[in-house]
Design a protein around this nucleic acid. Structure first.
Lengths: 325, 325
DNA sequence: CTGTTAGCGCGTTCAT
DNA sequence: ATGAACGCGCTAACAG
């Protein structure tokens, strides 16, 4: 609660000197420095960050917008983003849109109001135009928001290819694809590629179900899984998000379908729960840590104007070998 | 980027009038108000939150300290806290300590530096004294930080009791208890109660393993599970956190042990992954939504000095019936 | 080397 | 009803 003026008074010097002494900027003689440090300690002085923020027009806070923090991918993403931001001296404001675009908009507005210095968005509810209006630093994960906003994501097409190849190896003939329906989103690439490769290789049937793009609840996925087996009891392959894959695995086990003998299941993301089930889920893994690190560095490059950022950054994916193929 | 002064100039009035007009405080004639609103729209004026914060000495940001955001319980907790804070007009700063008490300290210091208006802590790495030094609003989840800091948590003792009763119903004779070793933490109650009830009822052996209190990784739990079955292949009951229970379930299935016929497993928390495995995990569920709501309201009662907050708030728990008992 | 002063942008008296 | 002036706490430029 003590202000810099009080410290100056206590030390018998001017406020400017205190500021320089405590920030290590400019010249201060060793002895007055001592006096100032003693006074600061005595008064238990802590600089008021609010005044600093006003002066510097900067808060050191980065906003991270996600659709659902409870989803394993996003909680992991935010965790690693927070860790990387912390390393670089920034704080993390979490913005959970729960699929409501008004909330996404409100959080986006924090840029103009100077509450955050930049935004990393992984939520895809708002019109692209709303993002393009912004002039302050933004990076996007997995969704194309135009060339001025760097796009960072994993190689979804390769993910779809790897999954398709696994299906072909396992000689699957009737494959179900659980995809999302969001426009402009990179995740679509994996389903397109997956489907294309299977069809080119003469797989008898490639069926497709579209989940709402902002549906992340277990219940919804479980219901969908039950529908799949009700309508198509003879599917022998399933590819979808981790959640979709896990739901299908669970329903299959309840119905006594043998996995992987009679049914192959492949997830995408390979987050924690995929390793908790038995057999463990075979899945395409994206490197969330790297994704977080790259995103943070791209954003801070913009915030601190360190250097130019490429408009697209694509990360590799790999197979997590489980027991469901 | 336009300041209030520019709006005043554009409208041909003083800054004070603009401030009153836009904030609806004090008297402004309808016509000048119109002029001001037009000028504000024309210049695309957005008030600078930094200046406001400095004046009001308040940011509208609440810090939430957790040990591991990737852990299902904490990601769910933070999600619901964020939603409740949003409803009440506050923003959420996430502080992930990853078990490092220096980080916990740094985040705690944000209170004094006025970066946050209050803190909800669910991390338990720092000395109690460090929290007690603080004078600004703090509430604690699941750890006693002294009578001045409201403590909010579920009824762990009842949870332990419910779990013990399930074990007795299933006539288990050699039960393994996977507990933490953190001091001052309410979670200890559930293990103490569980153990006590089983011993009073003549269960032949109650074994115990202590996980490091800030260990949340799946790998560590999996290793521990393997150890349990290696040293005690004949256990017929296991109680621990969700993660511990899921790890044991997974290892048991790999070893061909029949669950629940030959082994009963009970988790604590009943978070999402417990419903993804087959059979679904029987677990003690705590109401995270309510926990979040209560915590936020307690904290904001302090921040806005609405009313006094009880020093302890204990929430009920219930059984989530799965297929592992 | 150090003290003084002018903003940073906004909200609120206090005269008018 | 409204404008001018002050202050929130701090930093940086400037004069000494």
């Amino acid at each position: 609660m003590a202000s810099i003026r009080e410290v100056a008074q206590e030390a018998g010097v001017g406020v400017g000197t205190v500021s320089r002494a405590l920030n290590g900027s400019g010249y201060v003689s060793p002895e007055t420095r001592k006096k100032i440090e003693k006074a600061a300690k005595k008064l238990n002085y802590t600089p008021n960050e609010l005044a600093r923020n006003l002066y510097h027009n900067k808060t050191g806070i980065v906003g991270v917008i996600v659709p659902d923090l409870e989803h394993p991918f996003f909680s992991s993403l935010v965790k690693h983003i927070e860790m990387e931001l912390y390393e670089q001296g920034y704080k993390t404001m979490i913005c959970n849109t729960v699929g409501i675009s008004r909330r996404e908009q409100e959080y986006l507005d924090m840029l103009e109001r100077n509450i955050v210095d930049g935004i990393i968005t992984a939520s895809h509810g708002l019109e692209v135009e709303e993002y393009q209006k912004q002039t302050k630093p933004i990076v996007s994960i997995d969704r194309d928001l135009g060339s001025r906003i760097p796009l960072i994501g994993c190689d979804h097409a390769k993910g779809g290819k790897l999954a398709a190849e696994l299906m072909l190896e396992a000689r699957r003939r009737k494959v179900f694809l659980v995809s999302g329906i969001s426009p402009n989103v990179m995740a679509n690439d994996r389903y397109r590629t997956f489907r294309q490769i299977l069809e080119e290789n003469g797989v008898v049937a490639v069926l497709q179900e579209e989940m709402g793009w902002n549906i992340f609840s277990w219940e919804a996925h479980y219901k969908m899984a039950e529908e799949i087996f009700r309508l198509h009891p003879d599917v022998d392959g399933i590819f979808g998000s981790d959640l979709a894959a896990l739901a299908c695995l669970n329903v299959a086990q309840r119905k006594g379908i043998r996995v992987p003998e009679d049914l192959s299941i492949i997830g995408f993301d390979a987050m924690a729960p995929s390793g908790m089930v038995y057999p463990q889920l075979t899945a395409i893994r994206q490197n969330v840590e790297l994704l977080a690190e790259i995103s943070v560095n791209a954003l801070l490059d913009m915030v601190e104007q360190r250097k130019n950022v490429p408009s697209r950054l694509i990360l590799d994916v790999e197979i997590q070998r489980g027991g469901t193929v």
